[in-house]
Every structure is written in C-alpha cells, then in structure tokens.
Amino acid sequence: MSVLSKDMPCASRDFLEPNFLAVKHLRKTFLDKKRKVEAIKDISFSVGKGEMVGLLGPNGAGKTTTIKCILGLVKPDSGDITVSGIDCRRNPREASKNMAAVLEGARNVYWRLTVWENIIFFAGIHGVSVVKGKEYFEYLLEELKLKDKRDTEVRNLSSGYKQKTAVACALAKMTPLVFLDEPTLGLDVESSYELREALKRLQSEEKRTIIVSSHDMRVIQDVCSRVIIVSGGKVVVDAGVEELLSLFRTRSYRIVLSRNGNGTSLEEIRRKMTQVFPQAGMTETRDTVEIKVDLKNAFEIYELVDTLRDLRAAIETISQEEVDLERAFLEIVRRENEICG
C-alpha cells in the first residue's frame, strides 16, 4: 500500500526514462589555497527512473562532489547535467523541484525542532503542504519507526534516529529523485540494518530513483541493483550489482580433499596441480587438503575436474569462493591503482 498520490511522478517499474538523470563529462577542480585538487576528472553516467543506484569509491574519489554538482550546491567547471530533461545548470530552480538529499557530514535537520516540525518544514519549502502530505508523512514515520519520536526535539534523539529524521525529511519532499550521501555513517549495526530495511521497503513500494553513496558495502549490496564505482574522479565501473558479483564469482574455486583415501600421494597431487595451475595454492589441515584456484577463464573448470579425476582425488567439496561487493570493490580499486600508479 503506497500512500503516494497518483500525480507523484515516480511510479515507473521498467525504467521508462533510462536517462532520467544524465551526467555527461562532469569536471571540477577545486582551488584550495593555490593548490589544485582535481576532484572530478571526467564523470559520465545516467540513471533510469525508478532505479536504485549505489555510488561507491574510496575516500576523496569525488562522490560527494558529484552529488553536490547535480544538486547545484557546487558549480562544476564543465559538463552537462539533466534531470527529467531539465538542464540543472541553466535552470537550477526548476531542476531542484525534482530532487532531495541527505548530505554527508551535515546535520541536515534542525536539532531544536521536533521530528514532525522538521518534516513539515522541509516538505513545505519544497512546496508540499501539510494538508497534501500529512498522510504520507505519517506513513514515513511508520516505515522509519519514528512514530514514538514524532514530537521529540531532534537534539534529544540518538544518532540513528537523527539520521532517520534526515532521511524522512528528504523523502517527505516527494521528489522523484533522492540522494543519500552516506546515510548510515556512524550508525550501529542494528540502526544501519533498520534503515536499510526501511529503504528497501519504501523503494519497492514507491519506485523512486534513489542514489546512495556509502562506504558500507552491505548497504549498497542490500538495497541497490546497480553500482557505479568512482575512483580518482572517474567512473571505473558501472554495472549491475549481480553482474559485478558474478564477474568475480566465476573465477575463484576452493576444493577440499580428504587427507586420506586419495588415489595418489599428496606429493603427487601437489606436483601435478602446480604444474597445470601455477596460480593454485594448497594448504593442509589435520584432516583435509584445501586447494584454491583462480581460474583464468570459464573453460578451465573442465581441466580442473579432469586433473582431479586423473589424480583420483577424494573430493569432499568444491565451492565457489564467496564474493561480496566488498571484495569486488577492493579488487577493482586495487587494479585501478596498479594501472594509475
């Protein structure tokens, strides 16, 4: 049940507008006390309406700067940004009607006001009146589990609730595009999980376009379907989360042999394996032998199985190495640094 009114422009399921947000060749260099910081070298991407995209990247990669350029809080040196076809740089006021954000490192809300007062204020300055939004605001409080805190001044809330209030204020503006820059920063495991769950629920019901930047891979892996990885002011990966994971998943295998019962001696196994797969590693435990192999391509799996058969190895398990976004991300950034360094 979504309480959003019908005229709220965010209900597309299959990305009717693939270029709902389009960023082209964005560049920004900061002049900081005569030192030049190339925060964004060249960033281009587009996001479809209703997509939930993660923005990843190491510290100083340019994520926040990119978001602020889109929001009109930072003036880019060059590049085109359009939201729903509106040129953000030429027509910032019109564009801002479509956007809301929780910004990194700022309080975002008035600590002296209550949760409810904050919500109606921030929605109000976006043109959503209490009359029009009341039902939806209540629904947000419910979803974000803020109902009990409705009339508490924000300064008396824990940091998790403060952050949730900021998220509520951003969502209450009912804009089709929402940016969340590090929404779970400083939250404990429990609060972070709750916020993620709420975001997922809201997203599945409302189909808004949400862009989440976070260092917490669980957040991205959990709620986003696509991820854009930025490093050194450039986009290095732009792929579906599943696609990205499978890219790393196909390569890494772990084979556990029992120590006894092999048709060949362990020495022979080791010799043969390292001959066929020089990249393989073997570790022995009390009862088992573990082989780790990074396969170079999808066909090497046959060779691996054949080799093991020839050795008449007693296989206990073959498993794919678990990949999560964190590993994939670290690997990409590592490779990127190798190329650049």
């Binding site: 929001l71 809080l73 954000a101 700022a106 309080r107 976006h126």
Partner: peptide
C-alpha cells in the same frame, strides 16, 4: 548544518 538543505529548496 541546514544551510545546504535550504539551498535545495526550489
């Protein structure tokens, strides 16, 4: 910490 939020208003 609300200045930028105010700047987001249309």
């Amino acid at each position: 910490g609300t200045l930028e939020q105010l700047y987001l208003s249309p």
